[in-house]
Write a protein that binds this DNA or RNA. Structure first.
Lengths: 210, 210
DNA sequence: ATATAAAAGGTGCAAGTGCAACTTTTTAAT
DNA sequence: ATTAAAAAGTTGCACTTGCACCTTTTATAT
């Protein structure tokens, strides 16, 4: 996957910083990132560390809507950040680069290839995020757990072409991703196992119908 | 909402067309757009007409995943277009402008403000789409119809600040948007009415708790 | 090596939902 | 003005799901 500064040398990166007038903020563990940077329209890049975008629901529930690792981007528009009900919390010591959205799309001087490369990288990253989001929507649109699972399998199968899926996260997280109750998901997985649709060994799910 | 050619004069637009080496395709009603334009990586703009992105599921079901009006953009990454299972069908006579993604982010000559304006518009449109998609995810993540409805109300209320929502589409479409069964949604709306949470008059839903 | 916590896996039950099959109302077409 | 089609609104029923509450297994820390 494309990263923000792919194909840029460190000297080009520092020139880019000047051109876009970036700011780098440092946050220590458990510090709030979002209400701190509250400029109207920004694009931010995690240079180092790890943070979480947390949504606070009207009933007080807190939900991790997105995880931000090194090279992740977030911003007023780009991520699940709707300011009012959102917090971004550094879960480790984290460095964040902040670019004013205006300057990103209207830099003072355009004729630098490094700016172009950067913008293209950002475009790529956003498009990739979009793709992933659309994948998830296709799953969430399914009404039943079985259909959600099968859609998820379908998408993962298409990516790897293997007839098995190796979960990169826990089954708990999978249930969150599918937005279903965890034990109800397990029940459905059991049914699929009984009907010889799938086999599960640790985090490897084999699709017997492929 | 931003449109692709906002703040550009017609002479700037034609210069932009040259710069980006665009192609304009014309489709008549019910003609396939997507398998026709099958370049690897493109960004397309509907100049005129109306089309639908249709997803064909493994069971044969066809679902309208997105509607494309004048000034809508779509593309390999930007929309719910995953090529294999997708069709885009012109539902009226439709003109489509197609830009090679490479040329969009790497035009031969950068020092034109009109290019800059255009790119910024596209960025804005993509970000807006992202916002809408994230809104929908927040709704779809809710497990129960009541919660989905309340989340939907919350989002719409925040946008307008009125204590009522005027549906821009039919209740059928709302059920599709929330990805729930239509009659089950009506049942829940009835409960909300009975509990004096809401009032419904035609397509106006009044939020009595606001 | 032992304790502790987290994840995996399971079950009964009540509540919620999808579905089919209606009726009534509204909108569009001839 | 009449007809047809689409949308709104309703209900019973079977099935699915969320939830609470378990046990067992695996991972992590001391």
């Amino acid at each position: 996957m494309t990263k923000p500064f792919d194909e840029l040398t460190s000297s080009q990166i520092s020139k880019l910083y000047d051109l876009l007038g970036v700011h780098i903020y440092r946050f220590s563990k458990n510090q709030e990132i979002l209400p701190t940077i509250k400029s109207e329209n920004i694009l931010a890049i995690i240079l180092e560390g790890y943070a979480q975008i947390i949504n606070i629901e009207y009933n007080g529930n807190e939900i991790i809507v997105e995880e931000l690792f090194k090279d992740s981007i977030f911003g007023t528009n780009i991520s699940a950040t709707n300011s009012e009900n959102c917090q971004i919390i550094a879960k480790q010591d984290t460095q964040v680069l902040v670019i004013d959205y205006e300057k990103l799309v209207n830099p003072s001087n355009l004729k630098h290839t490094y700016y172009n490369t950067f913008l293209r990288n950002i475009f790529d990253i956003i498009n990739d995020k979009f793709k992933k989001t659309n994948e998830r929507i296709k799953i969430l649109e399914k009404k039943q757990i079985r259909e959600k699972l099968l859609e998820y399998f379908e998408i993962e199968h298409k990516k790897s072409r293997f007839n098995y899926i190796y979960l990169q996260f826990s089954f708990r997280d999978l249930a969150d991703y599918l937005a279903v109750n965890r034990s109800a998901m397990f029940r459905e997985l059991k049914h699929l196992k009984e009907e010889k649709f799938i086999e599960i060994k640790d985090r490897r799910i084999t699709l017997l119908y492929k």
